[in-house]
Nucleic acid binder design. Structure first.
Lengths: 108, 108
DNA sequence: ACCCATATTCAAGTCATCTTTATATTGCCG
DNA sequence: CGGCAATATAAAGATGACTTGAATATGGGT
């Protein structure tokens, strides 16, 4: 899973959002570090829908513009949970390797 | 930074290794989860050398075959350290979002 | 009137990674 | 001796997520 995908699933984890809402939520959650491009987002939403990790929730008509809301599926939540565990594990392993490099000798 | 790149830097963090050694170390560190392809590895080593994150350490002639050892540069260690912090931060954010989904209401 | 934020979609291109293939040497097996 | 596996590196082509850029449309602010 690449980062844009990770952030889209993360944004949708707490509640359904429409495309533009995902853009804003990702920016907020990543404290401005991750800025999703529109092309990336909508292509990813289609792909993730096809994979069954997200699904359309409902449509809203606001000011003549249609908003399509998406929600995380249970499979999507499971996938994000697994990915989160992997990230944590990877970070732990890298930190341990770096500590060896710096000669702390903390690892038995 | 994509995962193969992350694992190559992680493998080289504690000591210099030659190509095949990186393959084995990545497999060991990831507990068999990550299996680097040879093509991915050598292309990445060239790219990372060009970027100054790793550099050739020395060559050894073993049984008529040349082994080229690579080491992590200081810049490479800094990059891996930054990446590790990012992974941890991302994992924390996703875990918090998932906990909201599951309705624990732990967040404010 | 013009620009900006909102909101979505599409086309073209980039680039890391994956797959496959080639090369070379050593050692084992039959 | 011939073929096969393991070691070791490299290069070619394919894949596909992602990036860039633009088109389309509405409403608010200056």
């Amino acid at each position: 899973m690449r980062e844009p995908t990770f952030w889209i699933l993360t944004a949708l984890a707490s509640r359904p959002l429409h495309g533009y809402g995902v853009l804003q939520e990702v920016s907020r959650l990543s404290e401005g570090q991750m800025r999703l491009q529109a092309g990336t987002l909508y292509a990813a939403l289609d792909r993730l829908t096809a994979e069954g990790l997200v699904e359309p929730d409902h449509d809203e008509l606001v000011d003549g513009r249609n908003r399509r809301y998406y929600r995380l599926t249970d499979r999507g939540a499971t996938a994000l949970d697994a990915e989160t565990a992997r990230l944590r594990s990877n970070a732990r392993t890298a930190a341990r390797q770096l500590s060896v490099r710096h000669g702390t000798g903390r690892t038995a």
